[in-house]
Design a protein around this nucleic acid. Structure first.
Length: 304
DNA sequence: CGCGCAACCTGTCTGC
DNA sequence: TGCAGACAGGTTGCGC
């Protein structure tokens, strides 16, 4: 569920209320949450520590602690974080209320704050993870998994060209690979490709300079739109206040199979790419040829 | 190294 | 109503 816009929305809500606060108590209710480390290790490393900063890298939330270590949380598919006010105010999406059946069935971790508030992590599908890491280990962890931050100045047309060069896999898979652009998931990959006018099955390396720019811009615009709307709530997603986002009301193609393309009116099609549902407009998003056009002759404008 | 796909889990919805 | 099967925002590991 949560991709960059959703995670960033949560981060922005947590930051002002969490910075300067101390984790009075930390309870890991499901050992899966702390895997591969132990629940006890996470509890003891985080409890008693104050939060210096709340950051984000790709889809990871990073709570920087006062001892130099960081608590890192990834929501994966269905994880959610809910911040409860000191007075115990239960917001509409309160994980304990939202969960069907047993009120605490999906609650996986509880971080009690020194002002009486609570940060709750819930996750019905149990894919979400939390761990503690020192600065060097954390840098190595992210460096080995994540590429450029798409909303940073580093995400240039040149960067897009470099990371896609020579790739034979489909553009959709390329966007989902976090080592290229960090933070794009299934929703925003479809939206970005539509905005760029690119076919999800076109090979990454088939893009020409104008396509590099179009895709870079498409990714930025799709993510920024999602951020402006507080994320997309298809099913489970709620922000840290328990509210839904509204990006789902403005999907251009994602989950709109059979509906009219907002640009040309053609019916939107659903295919499966890399095991993931993929939606696009067959009229607006034409496939590119296998390889980029070569210079016609040896004597052409050379590479100086 | 790049790529495709199964696996990890649980819940919900659809079709028979 | 019951039940099998498909599908769901992500990432990792394995085989080729």
């Amino acid at each position: 569920m949560p991709e960059l816009p959703e995670v960033e929305t949560i981060r922005r809500q947590l930051e002002p209320d969490l910075c300067g606060r101390r984790f009075e108590a930390v309870e890991v209710l499901d050992p899966y949450f702390a895997k591969p480390a132990s629940a006890g290790a996470l509890e003891s490393a985080a409890s008693g520590r104050s939060v210096i900063d709340v950051g984000r890298r790709g889809k990871y939330l990073v709570f920087e602690l006062d001892d130099g270590n960081s608590l890192v949380i990834h929501l994966r598919m269905t994880g959610s974080i809910t911040l409860l006010a000191p007075d115990g105010t239960a917001s509409p999406g309160d994980a304990r209320i939202h969960a069907p059946g047993d009120p605490e069935k999906h609650l996986k971790a509880r971080f009690t704050l020194d002002d009486g508030g609570e940060m709750l992590f819930a996750d019905p599908r149990r894919f979400g993870r939390g761990f503690i890491a020192g600065p060097e280990a954390l840098e190595a962890y992210f460096d080995s998994r994540l590429g450029v931050e798409p909303l940073s100045p580093d995400f240039t047309v040149e960067a897009m060209a470099a990371m896609s060069a020579g790739r034979t896999g489909p553009l959709k898979s390329f966007l989902l690979n976090q080592k290229g652009v960090a933070g794009v998931g299934n929703i925003y990959a479809d939206e970005a490709l539509f905005r760029a006018g690119l076919h999800p099955l076109s090979p990454g390396g088939s893009m020409k300079p104008e396509h590099h720019r179009a895709l870079r811009d498409g990714v930025v615009e799709a993510l920024q739109r999602g951020l402006d709307l507080g994320g997309a709530s298809i099913d489970d997603y709620r922000d840290a206040r328990g509210d839904t986002g509204s990006m789902q009301n403005e999907f251009l193609v994602h989950r709109r199979e059979g509906e009219a393309c907002p640009r040309c009116g053609e019916k939107i099609v659903r295919i499966v790419v890399g095991g993931r549902s993929t939606y696009f407009c067959p009229a607006c998003q034409k496939r590119l040829r296998r390889r980029p056009r070569r210079l016609a002759r040896q004597g052409g404008p050379g590479r100086s």
